[in-house]
Every structure is written in structure tokens, then in C-alpha cells.
Design a binder for these strands. Structure first.
Length: 271
DNA sequence: AAAGCGCCCTGAAGGC
DNA sequence: TGCCTTCAGGGCGCTT
């Protein structure tokens, strides 16, 4: 399941197949995902031409004129481009047929994903309106983290995974970035200095950018548009490495539940 | 306002 | 072999 690097990898992989293409058919087989798929999606989409594929946080936005098809991959969703002759399989919930004899196919076993038709400005849509800055943009930096965290008692890991703080930092990369910045994931967000937040912001940018370059992380579900896997899992320092030696040589990596999510860290170098 | 928890769903993995 | 339990990369929304 995708975090921001996987969504961005999907976006980059799918955009060349979509840009300039006209929609000639929509087949929705499972109306109920996280939310109901927009009912008249076929009416809205068929005949429109896609301009580009954008991303906001973990949401993909397929621009068609000034309106958008918005897709979230949830925990287990994936988008692929397949020939229009390929029959849909299990959990293939939505097909967008293009005038290239190809189909954008949305598969999502756990159905935590979603698909919406946005007729208005995406930025004003309820699920997007309250989102924090993009982590790879200049709007996101240590000063912002410091400012937003004052007085907050929540664990710093929970704080950076909150999409109102910054979008796109999921469970894997939160653990990885905190290790990189030597910050203990359970430390109260409001009790971290500006200097340390500057290191954390850099670590988040660096971790996400490196993961995008590697094509994302494949743990169990995630595969790219072409069905291939990402390779960032080979570079993970702490995630899923309970008991393994910290890369800095301190001692064994520990795991702990923080905010109901499994968290991995080194109790020696992360404070 | 912020924090904490439940919950949507399927499938893989591990224990017995 | 099979059954049962646990856990999984997200995130909204309700309650306290």
C-alpha cells in the first residue's frame, strides 16, 4: 500500500499513457469502496480528454478539462495500464477505457480506496481542503513543523503522519525519517527544538525523494503501473527490522505500537 | 482544540 | 493439511 512515493511512482508511470487520451468507456463493478464511487462517473467521463495526472498528498487527480477524476489507492489499491482485451479479475473494481485500446484498471482488495468525480476546484473539495503542505515543496520545512507542534503532546510520529501537518508521510517513511533524524518516535511533538525539526524536515524530504527515485517500496501489495516492484525496501534502515542491528551499530532495533501503528526505532541513537 | 480509538475490507502469515 | 488469530503500507469521523 502505497505511501507518497508509491503514489508518485504510479502517477509518473501512468501519465504517459493517459495524457491526451480520450475516455471511451467506464466500467464500475464495485460501487462501494471507502465511499461510494461517483454514480454517474461514466456520463461525466466518456468523451472527455485527459490533460495530465496530478498528485495532491496521496490523491491522484486526472485532469479532464477543468474537472477531475480523483483516485485514492487506500491501503491495497493499485492502478495499471492493460490492453482492452484483458478480462478483469478479482477486485478489479473500475476500468477507464481509453482511445488507445488500453484500459486504466483500478484493483483494490481491501476497498479502502476511493474514486470521485470533482466538478469544482479540487482544492475546495472536503477531503483536500484541510491538507497540509507537500513534503517536497519549499512550503514544508523545519520552521513549519516547529510552529505547528508547539503545545502538542502527541507523539512526534503521530504528528508527522497527520495529513494536516504535512501530507504523504505514511507509516514506513515516518519510522525511516525519524531514525535518520535521530528522534525518538514517541517523543512529544511539542518538546522538540527548531534545530531538530529542521533535521527532521530534511530527513523526510530526503527519505521520500530517495524512495521515489527507487520506484517506491514493495512490501506486499504495491506494484508499479507495469506490474514491476519498487526497490526502496532494500534501503530501509529500521522498518520491519525488529531485532536487527541499527545501521549506526548501536544495538537492536525495537518495535512499539504508537498511535495504533507499528513503529520501528533504535532506542540508543533516537532520543 | 487536540487526542484516542473504532472501523471500513480482504488476504497473507504464523501458531497450533 | 486446515482452522483460527493476528496483522497489514490509510485515514475519516466519533467520542472524550
Amino acid at each position: 500500500m502505497p505511501e507518497l512515493p508509491e503514489v508518485e511512482t504510479t502517477r509518473r508511470g501512468i501519465e504517459p499513457y493517459v495524457t491526451g487520451r480520450r475516455v471511451i468507456g467506464v466500467d464500475s463493478r464495485q460501487p462501494q469502496l471507502r465511499w461510494p464511487i461517483t454514480e454517474n462517473l461514466a456520463q461525466e467521463l466518456v468523451g472527455r480528454r485527459f490533460k495530465q495526472v496530478q498528485r495532491r498528498g496521496k490523491y491522484l487527480l486526472f485532469a479532464a478539462g477543468d474537472k477531475h477524476l480523483m483516485i485514492h489507492l487506500g491501503m491495497s489499491g493499485r492502478l495499471r495500464v492493460v490492453p482492452d482485451t484483458l478480462a478483469p479479475g478479482k477486485h478489479d473494481h473500475l476500468d477507464i477505457a481509453l482511445d488507445s485500446k488500453q484500459v486504466i484498471r483500478f484493483n483494490d482488495p481491501r476497498r479502502f480506496g476511493s474514486a470521485f468525480w470533482l466538478a469544482g476546484d479540487p482544492a475546495t473539495f472536503k477531503l483536500l481542503a484541510a491538507l497540509g503542505p507537500e513534503p517536497l515543496s519549499d512550503d514544508f520545512n523545519g520552521a513549519l513543523l516547529y510552529r505547528c507542534s508547539r503545545g502538542r503532546s502527541a507523539a512526534v510520529k503521530t504528528f508527522i503522519m497527520n495529513a494536516q501537518t504535512v501530507v504523504g508521510v505514511g507509516n514506513i517513511y515516518a519510522s525511516e525519517a525519524l531514525h535518520k533524524a535521530c528522534i525518538h518516535p514517541a517523543r512529544a511533538a511539542g518538546r522538540i527544538s527548531l534545530k531538530r525539526y529542521q533535521a527532521l524536515a530534511e530527513a523526510i524530504k530526503n527519505t521520500l525523494q530517495t524512495a521515489i527515485t527507487a520506484g517506491g517500496t514493495t512490501l506486499r501489495d504495491y506494484v508499479g503501473v507495469d506490474g514491476g516492484s519498487g526497490w526502496f525496501q532494500l534501503q530501509l534502515a529500521v522498518y520491519g527490522k525488529n531485532g536487527a542491528l541499527c545501521p549506526r551499530g548501536c544495538g537492536p532495533i525495537q518495535s512499539q505500537n504508537i498511535g495504533q501503528r507499528n513503529t520501528f526505532f533504535c532506542p540508543v541513537c533516537q532520543r
